[in-house]
Amino acid sequence: MRNHSGHDQAHHGAHGGARPGGLSVSEDGYTLELDATILTAGVQPVSFRVIGPDGQAATEFIPEHEKELHFIAVRRDTAGFQHVHPVRDEKGTWSTELALEPGDWRFFADIHPAGHDGTLTLGIDVAVAGPYDPRPLPEPTGIARIGAYTVALDGELVPGEASALTLTVSRNGSPVTDLQPYLAAYGHLVALRVGDLGYLHVHPEGEPGDGTTAPGPEIAFMAVAPSAGTYRLYLDFQHDDVVRTAEFTVRTTPTAPEHGGHHHGHQAPPAHHAHH
């Protein structure tokens, strides 16, 4: 397991307890500022800045998973998920393109500003004009199908506890054993809490080239659900030079009762898994 992943998990655990990221447009003096928060449908240019504590656009970031900034877009009904990597100019303006359908959207910027202790996820609401037909939340299932690919999810989300999630990729019924590295891992997993789209930081177990992590068919992650509820999981993986996204709906399972049958699921998770 990557050392900094443990550090990140400890940091996020200490950063407001179980509170997920992305619920605020501004945090620790950093603010996400879009050039436009009303957009039209279709493939659209999007530009924005991260305003730092000094009131200027930030231009120095520490790369996380090979990128200075990860930009996530999802409609409020959890449809339309996109994970893109904008390009920044020297003045601090980021630019990218998104494929947008009408509706209310949430955009996230996942960053590690230079000089800041750890990563931040800032979130902002965006309206896309046009007739909006919300989609019902897909039912929980452990299988996602994307064309010829099938991804199976094994593991459970437990409120307040780190839990292992394993995703197994197959194509046409055969295990995929030659996944390509994507963002310094064989997969990148984003989890969002249904209802407020709270953004969970999920860390891969191992990395390509570490001598122990195989290129499939299994991709392992550690995740912490901050609360009971329903979550949407989005796995990006790369195979045959194409990045594909597998989507899952997951409901949390309660922690096991301890002595005398009392539930302790509401208590803070033990700190022993945090690295210092």
Rank of each mutant, 00 (worst) to 15 (best):
R2F: 06
H4M: 06
G6Q: 14
A10E: 11
G21R: 02
G22E: 05
L23Q: 12
L23I: 09
L23S: 11
S24Q: 13
E27R: 14
T31V: 07
D35P: 01
D35W: 01
D35S: 14
T37G: 03
P45G: 06
V46E: 01
F48N: 00
I51S: 04
A58S: 10
E60S: 12
H65M: 15
K67T: 01
F81R: 04
H83W: 12
H85M: 03
V87C: 00
E90K: 13
G92F: 11
W94A: 01
W94D: 02
T96D: 02
E97L: 01
P102M: 04
D110K: 02
D110M: 03
I111G: 07
H112F: 04
H112G: 00
P113V: 07
A114H: 13
A114Q: 15
H116T: 03
I124C: 05
G130I: 04
P131H: 09
D133R: 14
P136N: 04
A144F: 06
R145V: 14
D154I: 04
D154R: 13
V158A: 05
E161G: 08
S163R: 12
T166H: 05
L167E: 11
V169R: 08
R171G: 12
N172D: 14
N172C: 03
T177I: 15
D178Y: 03
L179T: 03
Q180I: 02
A185Q: 03
V190C: 05
A191W: 01
G195L: 09
L200W: 00
G206L: 14
T212H: 12
A214S: 15
F221T: 02
A223W: 00
V224M: 10
G229S: 13
T230H: 09
Y234S: 00
L235D: 01
L235Y: 03
D240L: 12
D241S: 10
R244Q: 13
R244A: 06
R244N: 08
T249L: 08
V250K: 05
V250Y: 04
E258I: 12
H259D: 13
G261T: 07
G261E: 09
H264N: 10
H266D: 14
P270L: 07
P270E: 09
A271F: 05
H273D: 12
H275R: 13
H275P: 01
